[in-house]
């Protein structure tokens, strides 16, 4: 099992690597301009968060990831800026958040699906975002917080997942289980 982590510049990219390692999943952190051939044989892909302002048109800074998403047909999980990038790639919108969230927030699961299978309906997660997804055509809403609707989504037809919060940080409850659920999807 090998999951490639595309580093969009998050403080917590290395935490994603650590979480996957703890799950006995081989992983490697790669730059956002990595060619498809380098990730072609991976079983899954994680797009990390980052300082890139997807809500201000800065996705052009990591534009090579668009081609990567087109070519990579296996499961993809986007976190924070990574989730926003996935939304943009599939015709959605991202804008500066009405109320940004830094630190803890309460997540309510709307649809457990694969990502939240076996988890409680409400729990605490940590976020650190300036922007948020405002429209995601073709995606199903999985979870929200009091201040932000699109906290977690899944594509209706493809194995594409995203969370605005960061399940990889130590303070997020059930974070490792969320990654374990994603790894399960990669194993299918």
């Amino acid at each position: 099992m090998r999951v490639a982590v595309i580093d969009l510049g998050s403080q917590w990219t290395h935490r994603i690597w650590r979480t996957l390692r703890d799950l006995d999943c081989e992983s490697e952190i790669l730059p956002p301009d990595v060619s498809f051939s380098k990730v072609a044989d991976a079983d899954g892909l994680v797009l990390s968060g980052g300082a890139v302002r997807m809500g201000k048109g800065e996705d052009s800074k990591v534009s090579k990831c668009h081609a990567l998403l087109d070519e990579f047909k296996k499961p993809v999980f986007g976190v924070c800026a990574g989730q926003q990038f996935i939304a943009l790639h599939y015709g959605g919108s991202v804008a500066p958040a009405k109320m940004p969230e830094y630190g803890n927030t309460e997540l309510t699961i709307i649809e457990p699906d694969d990502l939240f299978a076996g988890l409680p309906r409400k729990f605490t997660v940590w976020a650190s975002h300036n922007d948020e997804v405002t429209k995601a055509p073709g995606f199903e809403l999985l979870a929200s917080s009091p201040d932000c609707k699109w906290h977690a989504f899944k594509h209706a037809k493809k194995p594409l997942y995203g969370t605005l919060f960061h399940p990889e940080v130590a303070h997020s409850q059930h974070g490792e289980e969320i990654y374990a659920n994603f790894v399960k999807v990669c194993r299918r």
């Binding site: 580093d7 969009l8 403080q11 890139v52």
Partner: peptide
């Protein structure tokens, strides 16, 4: 250790 180089930033990663 990891937080030292992570927070120092480089490339895409902001210097905290």
């Amino acid at each position: 250790i990891a937080p030292d180089w992570i927070e120092s930033g480089s490339g895409m990663r902001d210097n905290i």
